[in-house]
């Protein structure tokens, strides 16, 4: 049974009451009108006419006749009136029925609309929920990310000084390893410098060496490359995270000081 919204409850009640009233009127009022017939009055008058003369009788008859006619006319009029009343009632009923039908149709329409609205609402709700969920998810992700990076930051901050120390220690060891293998060519100018990009595998094995800036002295460039390969594997941290710093080295080589062994 569909629930009736409060906004429709009052008009519906009025409509139902009106219907009951109408039905009651139709069934009760019409029979009372049928029973109200003027019979006894005409009986007593006809008894009196026996005693009067013809003229009188004629007059009487005419009078009666007129009265009858009048009565008939009145009756007819009354019947007509009653009929009219019935017709009116009928019309009213039909009207009422029509109205009810319209009302019902309206109700149906409203119901339909309401269902539609409901459906729509549900859809909307779903959509909004979806959006909300997505938003929540994004927020969560963001939060997680923030947390992660914050943690990372904290972690790196906490271990940065320590890490920097470790990295620097390995840097010094790498320079020492290469320097010990670097035979500076006799003709190399102290001002010259070449730059190599060195790729290392975990464990420090030199994978690739690429000259990115030549000193202009091919012999000096070559001596540096030979030193890099000779020093392989280079001393690098065993820890994977720390080693990440050493995957690629950018080594500037310049014979500022040359040690005689």
């Amino acid at each position: 049974m569909p629930k009736i919204p409060s906004s429709y409850q009052v008009p519906l009640a009025i409509a139902v009451a009106l219907h009951i009233l109408l039905i009651a009127f139709l069934f009760i009022h019409i029979p009372t009108k049928n029973y109200r017939m003027p019979g006894p009055i005409s009986k007593t008058e006809s008894v009196k006419a026996v005693a009067v003369n013809a003229r009188q009788i004629n007059e009487q008859v005419a009078k009666i006749k007129r009265a009858e006619r009048r009565k008939k006319a009145v009756e007819r009029a009354r019947v007509r009136r009653a009929e009219a009343k019935v017709a009116a009632a009928k019309r009213a009923r039909i009207r009422e029925q029509k109205r009810v039908a319209i009302l019902k149709a309206q109700q149906r329409r409203i119901k339909k609309q309401r269902a539609l609205e409901k459906k729509h609402l549900a859809q909307l709700k779903q959509k909004r929920q979806k959006a909300l969920r997505a938003e929540q998810k994004a927020l969560q992700d963001k939060l997680l990310k923030q947390q992660l990076s914050a943690e990372k930051n904290q972690l790196s901050k906490a271990s940065t000084s320590q890490m920097r120390g470790t990295v620097n220690r390995y840097k010094a060891q790498i320079l020492q390893a290469i320097g010990q293998n670097w035979l500076v060519p006799g003709g190399a100018n102290k001002q010259l410098a070449c730059i190599y990009l060195i790729q290392l595998a975990p464990g420090g094995v030199v994978l690739n060496v690429k000259l990115v800036h030549s000193s202009g002295n091919a012999a000096l460039d070559r001596s540096a490359r030979v030193a890099i390969y000779k020093a392989s594997p280079l001393p690098v941290p065993k820890d994977a995270a720390l080693f990440d710093n050493f995957r690629e080295l950018r080594l500037t080589v310049s014979p500022k000081t040359v040690v005689t062994q």
Binding site: N181, V184, A224, L249, T252, T257, V258, Q261
Partner: peptide, 15 residues
């Protein structure tokens, strides 16, 4: 990427 290093000392020895 690419850790910067600078080597400024080598050996004066025979190749």
């Amino acid at each position: 990427a690419a850790l910067d290093l600078e080597l400024t000392q080598g050996i004066d020895a025979a190749v």
